[in-house]
Computed example of a mutant assay.
Amino acid sequence: MRPNAKPQNPNFSSGPCSKRPGYDLSKLDTAMQGRSHRSTLGKAVLARACSQTAELLQLPEGYRVGIVPASDTGAVEMVLWSMLGARPVEVLYWESFGKGWYSDITQQLKLSDVTERCADYGQLPDLTAVDFNSDVVFTWNGTTSGVRVPNGDWIPGDRAGLTLCDATSAVFAMPMPWEKLDVVTYSWQKVLGGEGAHGMLILSPRAVERLESYTPAWPLPKIFRMTKNGKLIEGIFRGETINTPSMLCVTDYLDALDWLAGIGGQQAGIARCNTNLQVVEAFVEATPWIHFLAKDPALRSSTSVCLTLDATPEQVKAIIKLLEQEEVAFDIGAYRDAPHGLRLWCGATVEASDLQALMPWIEWAYHQVVAS
């Protein structure tokens, strides 16, 4: 039977992700429009984005938060080019973005002392084999695979190398053991549903020490430089951005931070993601022809939920097209390099009620395409 109720919000894209519930563009504060980001007001607004982020994430003393160019990709590249080369490197990946970091480290930076630890989509590499005398690069949550590391227990507190973590689909959605993480990157467009083009960079004191004690052998573009005369450019972490940010996007990010603070902070965001995952888990458990790409429940992402279907690639595409035509789910196809299937964003800005409304539509579309 064709369902009657539709999701109130059919946006389940994994980036840019759905805006927060109740979002209204006309309600954004426009005081910063047409003003310089270097004005007293501009610096104060940017500084607030950094300080409120640190407060909501409950970062340890001494951790710094900065706004950098080019979304999460820019933030990751910034730290790879600025910090790697001082020690051997281990790269862990189990999906396309992590594989991209490995490629850049070996083919662009051309580092030779690099260990590759990889796994197929749906799995994790052996975390117990990682040598933390090396710098370790990894994603916390595989956006294109729906697989996350279960916790930070595998990272020692007394490591010699740095941990560099791409956490764009995890920050504000999953508990993060900050003392185990030296560099963390993310973008506004993911869990809080902000706008693209800006990255966030979180540095531990150990990461700052690396920046101030090590100079890479290669030249760095201006937008990658975080030190001057051997000292950290502290202004980057007080809202004095390297290049001109979109102040409209900054205002939008602050709106998202205020929303999260208003519903209970980071723990509320984590709880919303877990509730959303449970909706999908209940559907998969009751439906024999749909499966999690991540077979181990402990490794399942609570944001980028990846599913496979007992269907051909052409049938999967037809299901996705049908759901879009019915305006019940937009942009839910698996990432182009991942196995064919569905990818549902279940981050904090998504309502569980919308996912509950979507599940019968997925079943209906499957039977329309595959069982008809």
Results as ranks from 00 to 15, higher is better:
residue 4 N to V: 15
residue 4 N to W: 12
residue 4 N to P: 07
residue 6 K to R: 11
residue 7 P to Y: 07
residue 8 Q to M: 12
residue 11 N to K: 01
residue 11 N to H: 09
residue 14 S to C: 05
residue 14 S to H: 03
residue 17 C to D: 06
residue 19 K to C: 08
residue 23 Y to P: 12
residue 30 T to D: 07
residue 31 A to T: 14
residue 32 M to K: 10
residue 35 R to F: 05
residue 44 A to T: 02
residue 56 L to C: 03
residue 58 Q to Y: 03
residue 66 G to Y: 07
residue 66 G to N: 04
residue 70 A to V: 15
residue 75 A to N: 07
residue 79 V to R: 05
residue 83 M to E: 03
residue 85 G to D: 06
residue 87 R to A: 08
residue 88 P to A: 02
residue 91 V to C: 06
residue 93 Y to T: 12
residue 94 W to M: 08
residue 96 S to P: 06
residue 97 F to K: 14
residue 98 G to T: 13
residue 98 G to E: 11
residue 102 Y to W: 03
residue 104 D to I: 13
residue 107 Q to N: 15
residue 108 Q to I: 09
residue 110 K to R: 15
residue 115 T to F: 00
residue 117 R to E: 00
residue 120 D to P: 01
residue 125 P to G: 03
residue 125 P to I: 00
residue 125 P to R: 04
residue 128 T to N: 07
residue 131 D to E: 01
residue 135 D to I: 01
residue 136 V to E: 02
residue 145 S to F: 05
residue 153 D to F: 02
residue 156 P to M: 05
residue 158 D to L: 01
residue 158 D to N: 13
residue 165 C to N: 13
residue 172 F to A: 08
residue 177 P to K: 01
residue 178 W to E: 12
residue 178 W to N: 14
residue 185 T to Q: 03
residue 199 G to N: 06
residue 202 I to H: 10
residue 205 P to W: 03
residue 207 A to F: 01
residue 208 V to M: 05
residue 213 S to F: 00
residue 220 L to N: 14
residue 221 P to S: 13
residue 223 I to V: 06
residue 224 F to N: 15
residue 227 T to A: 01
residue 227 T to Q: 01
residue 233 I to K: 13
residue 234 E to C: 02
residue 237 F to N: 05
residue 242 I to R: 10
residue 244 T to P: 07
residue 247 M to Y: 05
residue 247 M to A: 03
residue 252 D to Y: 04
residue 253 Y to P: 09
residue 254 L to Y: 09
residue 262 G to F: 12
residue 264 G to A: 04
residue 265 G to R: 14
residue 272 R to A: 08
residue 272 R to I: 08
residue 277 L to F: 12
residue 278 Q to Y: 09
residue 279 V to H: 10
residue 284 V to I: 14
residue 288 P to Y: 09
residue 288 P to H: 09
residue 288 P to M: 06
residue 289 W to Y: 14
residue 296 D to S: 11
residue 297 P to H: 06
residue 302 S to C: 12
residue 303 T to R: 10
residue 305 V to P: 15
residue 308 T to Q: 13
residue 324 E to Y: 01
residue 338 A to S: 12
residue 341 G to S: 02
residue 346 C to L: 14
residue 349 T to I: 08
residue 358 L to V: 11
residue 359 M to V: 09
